[in-house]
Amino acid sequence: MNLFAQIYHLVRKEFTLEWRQKFAITGILLYVLSTVFIVYISFQNIGPQVWNVLFWVIMLFASVNAVLKSFVQESGYRQLYYYQLLHPIAILLSKMIYNAALLLLLGVLTFVALGFVAGNPVQEAGNFALALFLGSLGFSITFTFVSAIAAKADNSSTLMAILSFPVVIPILLLLVNLSAHAVGLLGGTEIWEKIMLLAAVDLILVALALVLFPFLWRD
């Protein structure tokens, strides 16, 4: 099997697994809904600026919880089996692709839920969608790789938060800035500059993750 076929089968495996144990995905979806609701009843009136920040903060916390399990969930023996059967890079990439899809779904759900209770301040839907896409990708790359690191230690869930939050803050800052344009808080023409920068950061991180992963998975 070549690399692409391996990735295809692995992504399919992730979806099938998720579909069979529905409690995990339902748990994350409920997590998003209840967080949105808690935020809404605490703030009541949410202006565009607060909306923008809240959206990404909810996304951040939901993403960490959603991605955390990617390397922790499966037992060491089963992982050993995968690594013998398949290329380790295919395993990493398939998890990144699957998590990006999951986070995109979470983002859309957060957007719908927050828009439903607190109104939808987004004026430039295209830019917002682009920010959401690049954001899901960036979060997925960073969190998947950090969860691979954290899974090697014993106290992985604490480690996941302290390792991944500082690393992801620059991406989060760019995302908040980018979607501030979409919400109409910021004007100006430098929006493409920021999109290119975000895409470049995503690209650098995925390249680096691919280079470093061979050193990580072996025990």
């Binding site: 690191i149 230690a153 760019l174 920068l197 650098i204 991180l205």
Partner: peptide, 25 residues
Amino acid sequence: RISAVFNIFAYASLVPLLYIIPKLT
């Protein structure tokens, strides 16, 4: 091994941005 991997990953995700982001804001 694992801390070397994290060190490289963290450095690359942060240091370019330490120069770029302050210029944008």
